[in-house]
Design a protein around this nucleic acid. Sequence first.
DNA 1: ATTTGTTCTTGTCGG
DNA 2: AAGAACAAAT
Length: 735
Amino acid sequence: MNYIDLNDRQREALLHTEGPLLILAGAGSGKTKVITNKIAYLIEEKKVFPSKILAITFTNKAANEMKERVRSLIDVDVDAMWIGTFHSICVRILRMNIERINYTSNFSIYDRDDQITVVKESIKELNLNKDVYKPRGVLEIISKSKNEDIKPDEYINQNYMDFYARNMGEVYALYEKKLKENNALDFDDLILKTVELLERDEEVRNYYRQKFEHVFVDEYQDTNTSQYKLIKLFCRENPNITVVGDNDQSIYKWRGADISNILNFEKDFKNAKVILLEQNYRSTSNILTVANEVIKRNSDRKDKKLWTDKDGGSDVVFMEYRTSIEEEKGVIEKILHMNYKGYNYSDMAILYRTNAQSRGFEEMLVREKIPYKIIGGLRFYDRKEVKDIIAYLRAIQNPSDDVAITRIINVPKRGIGLSTVEKLNAYASENNLSLFEVINTLEENDQLNLRSKKNIKEFSNLMNLLISHKDELKISDLIEKILYESGYIKDLETENTVEARTRIENIKEFGSTAVSYENDNELGTLEDFLSGVSLLSDVDKTEDSERGVKLMTLHAAKGLEFKVVYLVGLEEALFPTSRALESDDDIEEERRLCYVGVTRAEERLFITAAQTRTLYGKTNPTLRSRFIAEMGNTIEIVEPQNKIDTASKNLVEVKDLTTYKPSKVTQSFMPKKTETEKKESLNVSVGDKVAHKKWGEGMIVSKTEKGDDFEIVVSFDGKGLKKLMMSFAPLTVVK
DNA sequence: ATTTGTTCTTGTCGG
DNA sequence: AAGAACAAAT
């Protein structure tokens, strides 16, 4: 093997095989190359056993790529190494050891939807109002508490004086109780329970500490508190740990990622060596200049500046269209043009901030017959029919899984409706039984009528039949049995609509994933198959070889690269997102996201925006994103051909759109009044300068219809953003 | 009485 | 798109 391919910095990282090492790797600086070469070097030169190597990534795709690249470097059994995501490694450890902390190893894994279901049940059971205690919001609190290792009773005690928060603590407590009863773990638990296991059980802890002589962590800037704890638990004295990350690409704060993990590495690990990789092998220097120009505005970061020895390349171009529809059209025209110039469609990607933006581009691509692939969005495994089948499998594997049972008890329809399920649930919690146990001991229950009992009996027979076949059937055959015995397929066939037929197709495709799983893992169990399915992330489900233009969110694009990138929707309140506008920290995260987007491009980068955007059927005027101004003269601003360019015309257009379309109700109930009221109130639009009695002068950032009134957000000079109702605010227009 | 089908509302980021 | 509220069917 030769290591000449590496630059000096990279080689230095490779040769540092003892003790902690932090590699600060800028975008496109060859970090995967360094990790894989280092692993190969350890095995070949340092005679480290592959089974003593642990490498943790964030996606399965990254893990597989790492395995492949090590395999291509040296002749080694890569499956002996532990290379996987945080979650898959934890599941592997838990399946072997979870009995030590009082679970059984056939536990279910709950995804976000399952979590919401449990939260809703808990809210209901505690007789709380779900409009006040919003399930999504409560779940956010629960997840946050879990990641900070705050237990329900602690949370309740901390918030004892706050009625609202205390009740959320009660929901949290019940949620945890239910998960335990269902023998289920959520995504957060996978990490937390592993931490708990290692903390409590010295034997297990020492086993893994001994086993993992060399630990690698990729995307270290994205680790959260519990993941950090886990890493620490794997480490012995002066550990051989290599972490790779880029603080400028930390974009998962909302998921609990703690950027201080990477910023504090040198404090946390004594005698840590730090190596900076700043040479970029991906992009032209023009693209890097834009990236550097944007990211340098962030305050809390390790200073790092990408450079390249490549030529300048083409200018980075910004185009602002009049409407979002014109933006979509313009980008598609550009795609056709670049294709004509010799770029393949598969070399191009459209990157956007929110999934909702994909639809317009998709329609245009279909119209022009350009091949494309949307990554993320409505995911295959999130489809109703696929989730139903998975729920059947989960219920078979772990009958205590009430969420799975509830999902399928009346799918396909078998006459067990809402009120019956409610009764069963009530009986279950009263007697501390699982739903499945209640179903199996129906005779004792006298609250149900005969018809319901008969239907339930049929369902329980079905489930018991399926469970009895669990061990003797292959997974794919079990799936077939489920589809046949439950009548699921028959139901869809009778429906005989286009929709039903695609559902059948999807189910078939799911069946074939089971077949290929069996081919790859001869000894694979149902449990392993199910964990694999639930731990897949978006990015994992897309093949590299896929043809066509790729559409994805900026988050999904991290780690990928494309010859031509279209970065779309650079507008205030969209990118940066409206929810970030009021906090500097959040703006910095949006800026990192922008940096990630820019650095995906290898040769050509087109940035676009629209002056009015139609979303959810509403058209609103927009303001150019601050990031465009921050790029300054590193980008070339090009007037799109289909743009109407006189300023006055734009203004008229904008006004028309804002006062357009009062909601249906207001229109029919009080047409005249609405009209006059709106005319009377201040006639301003986004971008106008206004003055406020208290806050001085500022500029209008957004304007949204709220009933008869408009809510406007104004950015006051030196005072920040304020939300105002237009009819009440003492505002005057500044010319 | 209970389940199933239909219409209307609501929310509205990201993995 | 999913849930609530209501209407229709069993």
